[in-house]
Computed example of a mutant assay.
Amino acid sequence: MSTVGLWVIGAGGHAKVVLEACRAAALPVAGVFDDDPAAAGRDLLGFSVAGAVPPPVRWRAERKRGILAVGSNRAREALATRLAGVDWATVVHPSAVVAPDVVLGPGVFVAPRVVINPGAVIGAHVILNTGAIVEHDCRIGDFTHVAPGSVLTGNVTLGRRVLFGAGAVAIPGVSVADDTVCGAGAVLTADVSSAGIVVGVPARAPR
């Protein structure tokens, strides 16, 4: 039996963006789920939130694929671990520009007007948010979120669970450690070798 429709996990603001991208890309959504009891029955762009996230056995029985529409990097990782064995979809908005040789991991979300240039490798469950630019030969680790309007110039490496803030820029060749938070508008001109928060121009840890 073939898979029919996606299950979208999450009922917050980011889930709205994902649902709209699914509509634009003509990807059928079969259900929306969220573990928050208060979300059950909530209308989300015409979808009624069906309740708690189904266990993996139900995903397999109903041959469903899914996307984790949750903004928190750690929450996406926890859900992916809990739902091991689920078939994850990659959702790409039709307005995005993705070079043919780009590698997109399972569960990646590519929002409107994102540009991903040749040689880029994007890990599992990464969010590339509205208008982000990922230049040639970048590497982005699992569960990272590249926020709206940010720019990764050539050969940039982001580790796992990085939050690369709105409007932030990394110059060519910069490497960013796992679990780093790059503040909105930060300009990274040097490697970030350990987890923490960096802000400003040039970006550095706040004092």
Rank of each mutant, 00 (worst) to 15 (best):
residue 9 I to H: 01
residue 28 P to D: 08
residue 32 V to W: 06
residue 97 V to T: 10
residue 140 I to G: 05
residue 83 L to Y: 05
residue 89 A to L: 10
residue 123 G to V: 10
residue 128 L to P: 11
residue 168 A to Q: 07
residue 162 V to N: 07
residue 35 D to M: 07
residue 17 V to T: 07
residue 48 S to M: 13
residue 8 V to G: 02
residue 142 D to G: 08
residue 58 R to G: 00
residue 206 P to K: 10
residue 142 D to I: 06
residue 129 N to W: 09
residue 114 V to S: 12
residue 177 A to K: 04
residue 95 S to N: 07
residue 80 A to G: 14
residue 34 D to L: 04
residue 91 V to L: 02
residue 9 I to V: 09
residue 121 V to E: 08
residue 66 G to R: 05
residue 134 V to M: 06
residue 145 H to T: 15
residue 206 P to R: 08
residue 150 S to C: 14
residue 75 A to Y: 05
residue 134 V to R: 07
residue 173 G to I: 00
residue 36 D to E: 11
residue 92 V to W: 00
residue 11 A to R: 05
residue 2 S to A: 05
residue 134 V to E: 03
residue 127 I to L: 15
residue 25 A to K: 01
residue 57 V to N: 14
residue 23 R to F: 05
residue 174 V to A: 06
residue 18 V to T: 01
residue 78 A to F: 00
residue 23 R to A: 15
residue 35 D to F: 10
residue 169 V to I: 15
residue 104 L to C: 06
residue 163 L to V: 10
residue 100 P to Q: 12
residue 83 L to G: 10
residue 50 A to M: 13
residue 177 A to I: 05
residue 126 V to K: 01
residue 19 L to S: 02
residue 128 L to S: 06
residue 103 V to I: 15
residue 174 V to C: 03
residue 141 G to C: 09
residue 85 G to L: 02
residue 141 G to T: 04
residue 43 D to T: 13
residue 144 T to P: 12
residue 204 R to H: 12
residue 138 C to K: 08
residue 115 V to C: 13
residue 11 A to F: 05
residue 47 F to R: 15
residue 194 S to M: 08
residue 56 P to A: 13
residue 207 R to L: 05
residue 94 P to T: 08
residue 73 N to V: 13
residue 162 V to M: 08
residue 17 V to P: 00
residue 13 G to T: 01
residue 86 V to W: 11
residue 81 T to S: 13
residue 33 F to E: 01
residue 60 R to Q: 15
residue 201 V to E: 04
residue 179 D to V: 12
residue 195 A to R: 08
residue 193 S to A: 15
residue 8 V to Q: 08
residue 177 A to E: 07
residue 109 F to E: 02
residue 189 T to F: 00
residue 75 A to R: 12
residue 57 V to C: 06
residue 75 A to N: 09
residue 196 G to E: 02
residue 52 A to V: 10
residue 58 R to D: 12
residue 91 V to Y: 01
residue 183 G to N: 02
residue 117 N to H: 10
residue 39 A to C: 07
residue 155 N to D: 15
residue 173 G to R: 00
residue 6 L to C: 04
residue 54 P to N: 10
residue 139 R to H: 07
residue 165 G to R: 14
residue 65 R to E: 14
residue 79 L to D: 02
residue 141 G to S: 10
residue 16 K to P: 05
residue 152 L to P: 05
residue 57 V to E: 15
residue 177 A to P: 09
residue 36 D to N: 10
residue 139 R to I: 02
residue 54 P to F: 13
residue 102 V to A: 04
residue 23 R to E: 09
residue 87 D to A: 14
residue 198 V to M: 02
residue 106 P to F: 01
residue 17 V to A: 14
residue 90 T to W: 03
residue 149 G to E: 14
residue 153 T to L: 00
residue 57 V to H: 14
residue 131 G to C: 05
residue 172 P to W: 03
residue 154 G to C: 06
residue 170 A to T: 00
residue 180 T to Y: 04
residue 17 V to H: 08
residue 193 S to Y: 04
residue 183 G to E: 04
residue 105 G to M: 01
